[in-house]
């Protein structure tokens, strides 16, 4: 066997379609916004939409770590996001006079938001040690609702006078709000980096082993307690980071972070494929885009139809996914297949 080189950053970063996709979006949209092609008034793509896509990507990729890799159902991911948004919002509000640099302020708020969410992820991870499947899903669902219920009723000084309506700190972020989506996409890359590196390591193998066969994993010396807790904590951390971006982007209101929102993320994970980071990114783009379009398209009595579209997408996906023609098509569209074709072409010429 060929011995592997120790440092192989080139394949690590360039041999991976997820990084390529996000880097491509970041660079293209960054240039387009910088030049002024994309503005707030552009019809389809706006910086706001890009920000939404970015934080949704972080949410879906981190949820995939729990649902796809560990194989536990979590219905409270929006709860972690809410905690992140809340803590980050508070930090930004109370540090804006202390710290002069907007970006530094953002970073500190993001880290605190992430860590707060991580703490709660750890706490939610504890029942995960004893519960499985549906029962754990119920616990996480309840967790999300508890967070919402509690934060809905806490007033904080001058900042949150009416907790049911939430708070908005957009005025404090003017120094970087134009390029918020760029920061967000860079954080997406950081998230992908962390999640994929965990997945492709000793720890990722252990996590897959737990999903495949918990009893065997335990008797092979895999520390199930450790892995379940840490996976929940890491996923929650990134949900908190996504929440921090959210807090910079729009009003943080309890009505947003309900269980429907958690389930929306779950839909995206399922649509993109369990355990597939690239799929998560694609499905985030599709669903967020559809979401925004449908919201402006279906108004009044038709607004409820929006949820029907998700169901339709999932059903169509299920039917197409197994159809023989699509399977062969997918094999041909496969990244490694295309790469091997390119390579053989190079060798010929």
């Amino acid at each position: 066997m060929k011995s592997k080189k120790n440092f192989d950053w080139k394949t690590l970063l360039l041999g991976n379609k997820s990084y390529l996709l996000v880097a491509f979006i970041t660079i293209v949209t960054g240039v387009l916004v910088g030049v002024g092609v994309i503005t707030k008034r552009t019809p389809i793509i706006t910086p706001d939409l890009l920000t939404q896509i970015a934080y949704t990507m972080i949410m879906v990729v981190s949820l995939n770590l729990v649902v796809g890799f560990l194989g536990e159902l979590s219905l409270g991911h929006a709860g972690f996001m809410y905690i992140g948004a809340y803590v980050a919002g508070l930090t930004l509000y109370y540090t804006h006079s202390l710290i002069p640099f907007g970006l530094l302020r953002f970073l500190i708020a993001m880290l605190l938001g992430g860590l707060a969410a991580m703490l709660f992820g750890f706490i939610v991870g504890l029942p995960a040690l004893r519960l499985r499947g549906d029962y754990l899903a119920i616990v996480t669902l309840a967790f999300g609702e508890i967070v919402r219920g509690v934060l809905k009723n806490i007033t904080v000084g001058d900042m949150i006078k009416n907790p049911a309506v939430g708070f908005n700190i957009k005025d404090l972020t003017t120094s970087y709000s134009k390029y918020l989506f760029l920061i967000a996409f860079i954080l997406v890359i950081v998230t992908i980096f962390c999640v994929q590196n965990i997945a492709k390591s000793k720890h990722g193998r252990a996590i897959t082993a737990i999903k495949d066969n918990e009893i065997a994993a335990r008797s092979m010396g895999v520390n199930i307690t450790y892995y379940k807790l840490i996976v929940f904590a890491i996923a929650a951390f990134f949900a908190g980071v996504a929440g921090a971006i959210f807090a910079n982007y729009t009003t943080v209101a309890p009505a947003i972070f309900d269980y429907n929102y958690s389930i929306e993320f779950l839909v995206m994970v399922v649509l993109g494929g369990m355990g597939s980071v690239f799929g998560s990114l694609i499905s985030s783009i599709i669903i967020v885009f559809l979401n925004v379009q449908l919201r402006s398209l279906l108004t009044g009595n038709l607004a409820g139809l929006k949820n029907l579209v998700y169901a339709l997408i999932l059903i169509i996906m299920m039917i197409i996914n197994a159809s023989p023609k699509f399977v062969t098509l997918r094999e041909k569209m496969n990244w490694s297949y295309v790469k091997s074709k390119l390579q053989s072409k190079k060798e010929k010429s």
Partner: peptide, 20 residues
């Protein structure tokens, strides 16, 4: 009770997990 979604090599690597 193998780890079906891991390769043969990875199955053994899970077993080795505690030693390194």
């Amino acid at each position: 009770r193998l780890f079906n979604n891991l390769t043969v090599l990875e199955n053994v690597m899970v077993g080795l997990g505690n030693q390194i």
